[in-house]
Structures are given as C-alpha cells and as structure tokens.
Design a protein around this nucleic acid. Structure first.
Ligand code: ZN
Ligand code: ZN
Ligand code: ZN
Ligand code: ZN
Lengths: 167, 167
DNA sequence: CTCGTCATGTTATAGTATTACATATCCCGC
DNA sequence: GCGGGATATGTAATACTATAACATGACGAG
C-alpha cells in the first residue's frame, strides 16, 4: 500500500482528487503519492529529496519521474515552486474548482522564515493589484508574478531569543 | 587592453568606481570587467555565459572566478540576481552612495518581458510597503523580498503582433 | 623580513533540470 | 478483436547551475 500521510494531508489529497476529477485531469497514484509527500512536509521539498523518498517504494524512479509529476502538479495549481529555494510546497489556498483553462495557477505570495524554514502562503489582493498598477504605469502588463519574502515568522520572532553566543 | 563597452556602460562603470572607492571596496580589473559584461548586455546574463565570454581574454577562468566576482558585485549592490532566470542584471537604480554597512542591496522589483527577454528594474515604495504591511499583519517581519513579474513590456505589447503561424 | 589578509588560480564535486527515446496502457472507433 | 492516437511512465544520458577545498600570488603593517 502507499505511504500513510497525516490526517491533514489526506484531507488535502481528497480535495485534490475532487478537483482533478472535476477537471478531467488524471491524478494517478504516482502523482497523488508525490503530492502527498509535498503536502506532508513541514517545509518546501527539493526535487531530489522527493526522488530519494520515492525510491524507497519505487525502484527505478529517475529525475524525469519527479519533474514530470511536478509539472503536472504545478499546472493543476496543486503545488507552487519557491524560486528562492528551488523547492516545492503544497498549495493550501486557492485551489478552488474553477472552469477549465489549462493552467490553474493563482497569484500568491510566500513568506519564508529564515530560522525555521517554514513557508507560509498568502493570497493578498492588495499586493497583487499594487504591483499590477505600478507595472502598468511602466507600460508593462503582468501575466504572472513571483513574490517571495524572507524574514522571521511570528513564532521565531517571539521565541526566547535562542541565545546566540554573544560573549 | 580590456574589452570596450558602450558609452552607457562606461558611465555606469565610472560610477561604480566612485562608489567602491568611497566604501573602501576593491573593484579590481576582473570585477570591473565582469560588471561591464553584465551592464553591457541587453538581458540578464547567466554565470556560465559570463564565464565563456571571460575565457576569451582570460584563459583558465573557472566557475569560482565568476561566482566569487558575482558575490562581490551582489554585496556591493552593483548587480542583482533574477531568481526566475538564474541570471544577473546590472543595477541602474539605487546605487546611491550610502554609509557603509557590509551589504548594499536595496529593495527592487523586476519586470521580465517574456517576448524580448529584457528586464526592467523598478524601485517602487508602494509595492515594498504594501508587502511589508501585509506580512506584518501575518506576524511576519521581512528582511528581504524577491519580486519578479513576467509579462509583456510596452514595446512588445505595441509591436505589430509578430504573426504567430495561425493557419 | 614575515605575517596576515585579500584576490585569484585550480581541481573536483554537488545540486538542479532537461532531452531523447523506449515501453506500457487505455480509450475509441471500426 | 484490432489499429491508432493520446496519455503516462521507464530508462539513459547529458546540460546547466553552484560550491568545496586547497594552492598561489600580491601587498601592506609591524
Ligand atoms: Zn496556492
Ligand atoms: Zn520561523
Ligand atoms: Zn538596483
Ligand atoms: Zn519586450
């Protein structure tokens, strides 16, 4: 049987099943398994880390196995690529079932904590629209935008200042 | 003698000389040459493309030659890395001479034309501040942000619709 | 002079992603 | 049932991006 994921991941996988079925997209066992690995991770996961884990149950898996699957998941908007990390996170936000249009990505912003490594996804309309407006003023029409901030998440900011040897 | 660059590039190089001298940073001939290649290009340039060109005049140049130089130029804020392209562009905006503080990068946004490949640098305060505000509302404090939009520049939007074989 | 620092040279390797071709599977119309 | 296209995956090789580790050279401070 396939790997077992957290309750939350299973729930998101079920949602993905529904979305793909509705679109006529084929969320195969391989794709579902890799999506599960991504969703189950606390932090963004690199392609070769996914490959290593996949190989534990699927001997002969190779880079194209992973990258093709990632392409599919990206097209379906089920995951995002975090450029600054060359890694992938599950989408937990905008995967509302929309009328089919080939690519289902949505505008998002990512907050990357440089201490704990976690990444939070935001979908803030103001950010998107201000950028679009400013670009338009420069005569530029945006089709997609990468917005990734690095800093400290609330947990790590509040945390007991993990005394950094300051002797 | 070193390669010859456009008048505009030479002007920016002279500005870089002044900035580095003011900071006590050492803009060596190698660093100046690579900065010139980057500034002179119409589009972002990859590290290995720079390496190939550098080898025409400097036999024995190797990846570290390039990457160390890029690190220096990034620290000085003389170039930026465009994450979506894994490539580098010259900074033509915020290189004002500021009090020394190790790293001189500034907040910027990039508009990448998917047709002509050119990249425009913006420094819009609204974009920066809206993102900072929204992140703060999520309890996140930003130290740096990557903002890169892909789309069509004004020239390519206006252009005569380069007939894409639509038979 | 000699030591430390900075800049660069040199070799090797790690990490990320794609190309090209082969195979399997499934659905569909005949 | 069979041929043919579309989709999904297997397999091997390679391209592209980046860093590690150690060596050498230049130069100023003391
Ligand atoms: Zn999302
Ligand atoms: Zn954190
Ligand atoms: Zn700049
Ligand atoms: Zn253009």
């Amino acid at each position: 049987m396939a790997a077992e994921f957290s309750r939350r991941t299973e729930s998101l996988l079920n949602r993905a099943d529904a979305i793909c079925e509705h679109r006529g997209a084929n969320l195969t066992e391989l794709r579902r398994h890799i999506l599960g690995m991504i969703l189950d991770a606390a932090s963004p996961t690199g392609a070769y880390e996914l490959l290593d884990r996949l190989r534990q149950t699927r001997r002969g898996a190779a880079p194209p196995t992973i990258y093709r699957t990632l392409d599919f998941l990206l097209e379906q908007g089920l995951i995002h690529r975090v450029e600054r990390l060359s890694a992938f996170v599950g989408c937990v936000a905008g995967c509302t079932v929309d009328p089919d249009g080939e690519s289902h990505t949505h505008a998002a912003q990512f907050l990357i904590c440089r201490k704990c490594g976690r990444v939070a996804e935001m979908q803030d309309h103001d950010v998107t629209s201000v950028l679009a407006r400013v670009a338009k003023e420069a005569g530029f029409s945006i089709s997609t935008a990468t917005i990734e901030a690095e800093g400290l998440c609330s947990t790590c900011r509040t945390a007991p200042a993990t005394r950094t040897r300051s002797n």
